[in-house]
Nucleic acid binder design. Structure first.
Length: 553
RNA sequence: GCGCUCAUAGCUCAGUUGGAUAGAGCAACAGCCUUCUAAGCUGUAGGUCGCAGGUUCGAGUCCUGCUGGGCGCGCCA
């Protein structure tokens, strides 16, 4: 969809180009950077300069002469600088745009562009070895907002969580739990693996749960005892992770267990297929994949000399499965530490004949938490970890989600805990939420005063005239375009940025134009309609970010 | 050393895919509440877009080199 604000302008320019025999040219209309340059601009004359062998200004003159703008809606058309054509709108133009926004009601901003398309978004994918870490928060918020963005443009989205409950890390977890179990039973000198063990307080909690369920029956160290510890640990960790995700409003449709790849034979199949392609060889007792033949720098081990596959092989099998499901888009949300791995995996999957152009990888950089101007240490004394749950306790889910998506994924995010903690003034989340609450409050007052804010006919919109009203409409009109651009780029921060400009435009409007105390009933109705449209944009935009839109603050 | 990535106001970041005079928030300074939420609004100040070349009508944006951060480069995941 093309920005609705510019539809009429585009038609005017297109018609003029037609008349000049340039009907094949698609003019792009853009918002000028400076307000002094008008409400809309086209660079089409600059782009045609080379093709026509004329100066851009001369071309601009010809185009402008050939145009037939509606004088009720277009106040001025100027040629500026090297050949920009600038348009200035009359309030009537903005009234048209507002009417179209109101027509779309609560659906405004959401599009059906990708209706019938399916997307899979894999995110979180933390193994069940402990509670989520604050750093996971960025992956959680980013992945979920991307899923919401894709839904906003019409995709049917599956949210997927990939996990491994069988590997070395889980063995470490089991041993850690078992050690604490024995220590709690009085074997205080039972050794704890300081190097590989999980040190958190939660391990004791799990161990206490083992005691509650099994008493002292596991005192004899057997494989069974470790299996039980692993199983109890896995359940405990998953419960913890799900509880944290729940608090952030995040739900997955599919939990994919890496282990199932072994049971279902996908691992075997994958390695056989790679072998048939001549990409597999044995060296030093291990099995290698010749990723150098696929344009990468090094070959990698896919089966260790112990006979155990490395994580790469199941990752390849898993991506083959994801690509064979028929989704139109497969999104992986990973931390920057996966950068090398994902290249190898995709190279192998491509060699196996899958269309990896459907895969889009969102790699986010790491998060630094700052407190009082210095990096905040996430481990407390006693080795206890500060968790994502603790962060939510401290800041609330809305602030946590917003802060993790408000910057582009590829920047190293600095999470300012002091700024986030502020319940007033400077917190960027509250700025948006406050605008929403303010509007709700106006409508509450309107109801009390018996002001009808019913349906809007177009002729009621003639009351638009204040610059702040026009500026607000101009901003609101960019919402559908913003959502599409954000979805295209898989970049929720685009929406966060945009919502800030919406809130700003609204607060200015609110300050300069009284709504309920406007001079005439007609203006009251128009301004209520404008406030209502703003409320919809804020509500829908915040929804995409997974942030609540409170009615009162 | 190699790969990926980033470098824009004191700090944190935008910059609509190559367009006009570089944009916000925080911090600083000065104003605005007897009227719909002051968690707000208005204004001032703050810049050699890391450095050097190149591409063209035009570069913060694209290409090359350099400098400096981050991440990765193990039969860990």
């Amino acid at each position: 969809m093309i920005c609705m604000l510019f539809d009429s302008v585009r038609t005017i320019v297109s018609d003029a180009l037609d008349r000049l025999g340039l009907g094949d040219v698609e003019p792009t209309i853009e918002l000028p950077r400076h307000e002094s340059h008008g409400d809309a601009a086209t660079t089409v004359a600059l782009q045609l300069a080379r093709r026509l062998g004329k100066s851009p200004r001369a071309i601009a003159e010809e185009i402008v002469t050939a145009m037939q703008p509606d004088p009720d809606r277009i106040a001025a058309v100027d040629i500026a600088g090297p050949g920009f054509i600038n348009f200035r709108f009359r309030p009537r133009y903005f009234a048209d745009v507002l009417a179209r926004i109101l027509q779309q009601g609560k659906q405004f901003g959401f599009s059906d562009r990708y209706n019938g398309k399916r997307a899979n978004v894999e995110y979180v994918s933390a193994n069940p070895t402990g509670p989520l870490h604050p750093g996971h928060g960025r992956n959680v918020a980013l992945g979920d907002s991307i899923a919401r963005l894709l839904e906003a443009v019409g995709y049917r989205v599956t949210r997927e969580y990939y996990f491994n409950n069988a590997g070395r890390q889980m063995q470490n977890l089991a041993r850690s739990i078992y050690a604490r179990y024995r220590q709690l039973l009085g074997d205080t000198d039972y050794p704890f693996d300081e190097e590989n063990g999980y040190r958190g307080e939660y391990i004791f909690e799990i161990a206490r749960q083992v005691i509650a369920q099994y008493g002292e029956r596991l005192r004899e160290e057997t494989d069974d005892a470790l299996t039980i510890c692993r199983s109890v640990g896995e359940q405990w960790c998953f419960a913890s992770i799900r509880r944290t995700l729940e608090r952030l409003g995040v739900h997955h449709d599919v939990y994919f267990n890496e282990h199932s790849l072994y049971i279902d034979g996908n691992i075997e199949q994958t390695i056989t297929a790679l072998r048939e392609l001549g990409l597999v060889y044995e060296k030093d007792g291990a099995t290698w994949i010749a990723t150098t033949k696929l344009g990468l720098e090094n070959d990698r081990v896919i089966v260790k000399s112990s006979g155990e596959p490395t994580y790469r092989l199941p990752d390849m099998a898993y991506h083959c499965i994801k690509l064979s499901r028929g989704d139109d888009l497969v999104v992986d949300v990973f931390g920057a530490d996966h950068i090398a791995t994902i290249q190898e995996v995709l190279a192998a999957v491509r060699a196996l004949g899958y269309d990896t152009s459907r895969v889009r990888v969102v790699l986010h950089q790491m998060v630094t938490f700052m407190k009082e101007g210095v990096p905040f240490k996430l481990s407390k004394r006693s080795g206890e970890q500060y968790t994502l749950d603790d962060l939510i306790d401290e800041l609330g889910a809305d602030v946590v989600r917003y802060f993790f998506v408000m910057r582009a994924a590829e920047t190293q995010l600095v999470f300012d805990l002091d700024l986030a903690r502020q319940q007033s003034e400077t917190n960027p989340v509250f700025y948006l939420q406050y605008a929403h609450a303010r509007i709700c409050s106006v409508f509450a007052n309107a109801r009390e005063l018996g002001v009808e804010s019913g349906t809007m006919d177009q002729h009621h919109l003639d009351g638009i005239e204040h610059p702040a009203e026009c500026a607000l409409i101009r901003t609101l009109a960019q919402f559908p375009d913003t959502i599409e651009r954000a979805a295209e780029q898989l970049a929720p921060y685009v929406v966060a940025d945009y919502l800030h400009t919406v809130a700003e435009a609204f607060h200015t409007f609110y300050h300069e134009c009284r709504i309920l105390g406007a001079p005439t009933d007609e203006i009251v109705r128009v301004r209520l309609a404008l406030a209502d449209a703003t409320r919809t944009v804020l509500h829908n935009g915040l929804h995409v970010l997974g942030v609540g839109a409170p009615e009162r603050m």
